[in-house]
Simulated assay, not measured.
Amino acid sequence: MQGDQPQQKRQRRKDARPSEILEAGLALFAERGFAATRLDDVAKRAGIAKGTVYLYFSSKESLFEAALKDRMVSTMEGVGELTASFPGSTEELLGLVLERIYDQMIEGDAGVLLRILISEGERFPHLITLYREVALSRGMATMKAILKRAEARGELRVPAENIDPRMIVAPIAVLAIGEKVFGEQSLGDRDDFLKRHLDLVLRGLLSANAAR
């Protein structure tokens, strides 16, 4: 049994490597941007041999895609699962949904990916395409599901098909961009901004007789 312990430890270490590389990559993306980040530097930050990182990620683009899936897509998948099983009102659901997205986009490091798209997307248009195909499409599908759910409950002011789901999350992008341009001092109180965002969305979406 004791002889198995080193092997088990090595296996746990191997299993953890993709997430360790991802964390190192996100840290360097935040510090240097996409163009100036090299996979060799990511390997160094992760504390692994240079060649090891290529076993998991063949390029910076594949690392960026993995980060999109881990930070953005996984969040929207969680929101989708919540939407499918949530028993409460649309007001309650949207409050939880927006808070999750704020946590990831503003407090978490998914905002790093958005800032890269804003600042370097023109130089790397394939990243924009990747974001649209991997993350944006999933996010919009999730928002549409929330709208359809609200419509089925008789809570919407107008038909779901007449509502652009991008409007639900647009203030989050404004906040993320403001942080990049003006710094953290421009954000004000995050919880207050979220409260005002939710109020704006609910007033625009819900019918007068919807539960508030």
Rank of each mutant, 00 (worst) to 15 (best):
L206S: 04
L202H: 05
G88Y: 06
M140V: 10
P87K: 10
R196T: 00
R115H: 08
R190E: 07
K144Y: 08
D15P: 00
P125Q: 04
D192Q: 14
A43M: 08
S59M: 02
R100N: 09
E23T: 14
L114E: 13
L127Q: 04
A66P: 03
R115Y: 02
A46H: 04
L98G: 07
E133L: 10
A49T: 07
E92T: 12
N209C: 01
L114F: 14
E151R: 04
D41N: 07
D15R: 15
E77K: 13
R132H: 11
R157F: 13
G80R: 10
S74I: 05
A36E: 15
G111W: 02
S85D: 12
G111I: 03
G108Q: 06
E31T: 06
V112Q: 03
E151M: 09
E91S: 13
R153Q: 13
G154T: 11
I106V: 15
Q2F: 12
S85K: 11
A176W: 01
L156T: 07
T37S: 06
A210M: 10
E31M: 04
E122T: 11
L130C: 08
D15A: 15
L187H: 05
M140T: 05
V73T: 10
K69L: 14
L198Q: 10
G78L: 03
K144I: 12
G3A: 14
V97S: 03
N209M: 06
K44H: 11
D41A: 15
G80E: 11
L68Q: 08
R32Y: 10
S19Y: 09
P18D: 01
D199L: 12
V42W: 02
P6V: 11
V201H: 02
D103T: 13
E31K: 12
F86M: 03
L136S: 11
E23Q: 12
A160T: 07
A35E: 15
A30N: 04
R12V: 05
Q104T: 15
A66F: 06
P171L: 06
L63R: 02
A141C: 01
R123G: 09
A27E: 12
L198P: 07
D109W: 03
K180Y: 10
S58A: 14
V181W: 03
A152T: 11
E61Y: 06
P18C: 07
T83N: 12
L202N: 09
L82K: 08
R138Q: 12
N209D: 15
G121T: 04
E65H: 12
L194T: 07
M143D: 01
K180D: 15
S89K: 07
G33N: 06
V181T: 12
R32M: 03
L55I: 10
I48F: 10
